[in-house]
Design a protein around this nucleic acid. Structure first.
Lengths: 404, 404
DNA sequence: CGGAGTTTGTTTAGTATCGGCACAAAAGAA
DNA sequence: TTCTTTTGTGCCGATACTAAACAAACTCCG
């Protein structure tokens, strides 16, 4: 079978071209069987069989030819496809306002090991990245797995192609810190194999939700989220992040949603950033930020336990109206087929979904684009999973080239 | 050579895969010689030669092997490539507030025949489209050329996949008119060969500018224009129109650029639509729209001949500031690498480029994304050329399949 | 229980689209 | 003229498929 030990000249350069798409289908759960793989790829059964066999030989997927559960329909049951649990992993890392976290993530977005994370954050990016990579390296040693890449999520816009963090506001890092180079450096220093990538956390969360969460099947996915301070946005078009020409697309924080609103550091007033983040919510509800828990946690607790309180409810409705205005503007410009909200925005959606949807529909230009589904994100640690997606991407693009 | 009269089973289905990219390179002028084609395609000289020969055999391009002008460098001079002037054409049609126009457009965006157009516009879309298609059919008969498709530009958002005009405001057409189907019907009735497509005029103008005008080489091109009433936007990403999930992306007219501004039919105030279009300019300059010429022509005359007038200059500066605010919002969300302005916006840019660039830079989040080049469009009738691009697209995607 | 029908996997043969290589052709430079 | 540089062309083989026939594994129905 596939005596492929012959001359592999062009194989190494271009690979089997259906290999990448096939792996992506299995990776995202869209090809549970070989028969589905055949139709999704639009190739013959012979080709799909060869591709699946080659991916299995690479240790990336498992082809289960045993009968298994009845398929439900008649005809010969199809071989089941699944990512290989014992295959290679990538190192995923995330830095946020309250600490950092490292994890090993297998194909399919499955987290196979997580370090507890840390709550002390230094103002020196190199030190923080060194610590998080060290945790990842420890996980790798324990697991004994092969590592094929690393990804890092940071709460800041990351300029391409330089890989610099332009506004790491709540990390106390210097603006313009070369996070990508620093991360690559630390990964190399720790002896971890494979390429290393860096991206904005909301962008990566959107990527993760598109592949493994509430965004599956969407072709134009808009994601908006707020974690601690400020608001992030992301757009996934046909399965790829829309990063703009220099990685700065979807910086939605300075859409005006309240002309007489709070002053913003950008010089304007009533920006989405300062009108719909957790601090704005606590402020609108007349609460002072307490010492316990992050701003997001305090806001979430308030929304979930004291929603009956008049001031809490009024604050929620005010934020929902502002958020809806911003979303409507984005919907008019981007025309997504799905919107996913994260962080506090997800909590606001849960609190009063009808109100948010009504505001968006009212301010959208046409009924249909205004009736775009607005959903809550569904993955835990979606930025972390998204960082792993970044690292997996070369493998998904060309498995043969990436693993040799 | 290439005795290709054998079995053409898969050829008909998939075509030579480098054929489309090669034709696109010649079409957009990025492959003036066969040597450049070789490097641009990233294939061997042998492959590029075969591809060029096949495109010549199809009657799409001409390969000029005569010495010609000295190449400037040493070595054997490369064969020159050009689109075939005598090859097939597409029918391009445009409907706007002041009339309609039909033309025949060859590869390379060259208009080979134009009908004078008409100034009377009926409120019945079928009648207008029938007349413009009839003019196109007459041009075709005169020219004796082969027609491989037709494209139509309309001043309205066109919903996909239905092909309906959602807001044909200044045509007095009913909202939701099925323009795509009507156009296809008229094209079929006139006996014109090939598929027929319909698109928004600003979208198509952006496509044309990207391929043949000021947008060449851009990977993320933002285009904003205003012709008569209202403002249109378009985004071309990696050479393809970004239409959103249902064709409604880049409907930028209702960005708020002046919270205390003019009321807009959308229910809000100070929208880009009503703050930066020709009517807004005439209003700001204290002039009543006259009976002679379109609003755009009147505005242009005023700007070019009476810019010294205090009221005209003040009006221009007011509109520039509003437009800059809107552009800055779009730049923050889309992060384009180039911005092209059309219609009155182009005139405003010409009137005071420094002011407009300063406003955009000031309201953009980071210096670099704010310093995006802002240029005037360079093509005459760019919507018409864009409509032709739409019709050429199947040929550019797969020349063999499209011509058989 | 057993055949018919259905769906999927596998084998074999064939082919389109390239890459690699050697050589020829057309220019400038020495 | 001769050498060097650059480009075009013919030939061979490899890759990644398709097509078609056959085999396998299940359901359905009598």
């Amino acid at each position: 079978m596939n005596g492929k030990a012959t001359t592999t000249r062009t194989r190494l350069e271009r690979g089997r071209s259906a290999l990448g798409p096939a792996l992506e289908l299995v990776h995202t759960g869209r090809a549970p069987t070989r028969a589905v793989l055949t139709s999704e790829l639009g190739v013959t059964r012979a080709t799909a069989g060869a591709v699946a066999a080659e991916l299995e030989a690479l240790g990336l997927i498992r082809v289960d030819s045993r009968p298994g559960a009845a398929a439900g329909s008649q005809g010969r049951p199809s071989h089941r496809l699944a990512v290989d649990d014992t295959g290679p992993v990538v190192l995923a890392a995330q830095v946020h306002a309250d600490g950092f976290r490292a994890a090993l993530v297998a194909l399919g977005g499955r987290t196979v090991a997580t370090a507890p994370g840390c709550v002390t954050v230094s103002s020196d990016p190199a030190q923080v990245l060194g610590e998080v990579v060290a945790e990842g390296a420890a996980l790798l040693r324990e697991s004994g797995r092969r590592c094929v890449g690393a990804g890092l999520a940071v709460p800041s816009a990351v300029a391409e192609p330089e890989g610099t963090a332009l506004n790491p506001l709540h990390l106390a890092w210097p603006a313009g810190a070369p996070v990508r180079d620093l991360f690559v450096e630390q990964v190399r220093a720790a002896g971890i194999e494979g390429p290393a990538f860096t991206g904005n956390d909301v962008n990566l969360a959107a990527l993760a939700e598109h592949r493994h969460g509430a965004g599956r099947g969407s072709t134009q996915l808009l994601c908006v989220a707020t974690g601690h301070r400020g608001v992030g946005g992301a757009l996934v078009v046909d399965g790829r992040l829309h990063t703009g020409s220099s990685g700065l697309a979807l910086e939605v924080g300075h859409l005006t949603v309240n002309p007489e609103g709070r002053p913003c550091h950008c010089g304007s007033r009533g920006c989405l950033d300062v009108e719909t983040d957790p601090l704005a919510f606590l402020d609108a509800a007349g609460r002072d930020p307490g010492p316990e828990g992050s701003l997001l946690e305090q806001s979430r607790d308030l929304l979930r336990t004291e929603y009956a309180d008049r001031s809490v409810r009024a604050a929620a409705e005010e934020l929902i109206d502002r958020l809806g205005l911003g979303l409507a503007g984005l919907v008019n410009i981007l025309n997504p087929d799905r919107v996913i909200l994260g962080g506090l925005h997800r909590e606001l959606l849960d609190a009063d979904p009808a109100r948010l949807r009504a505001v968006v529909a009212d301010r959208s230009l046409w009924g249909r684009s205004g009736s775009v589904p607005i959903l809550a994100c569904t993955l835990d640690h979606n930025s972390l999973v998204g960082a792993a997606e970044l690292a997996w991407q070369p493998v998904l693009d060309d498995p043969l080239a990436a693993l040799t």
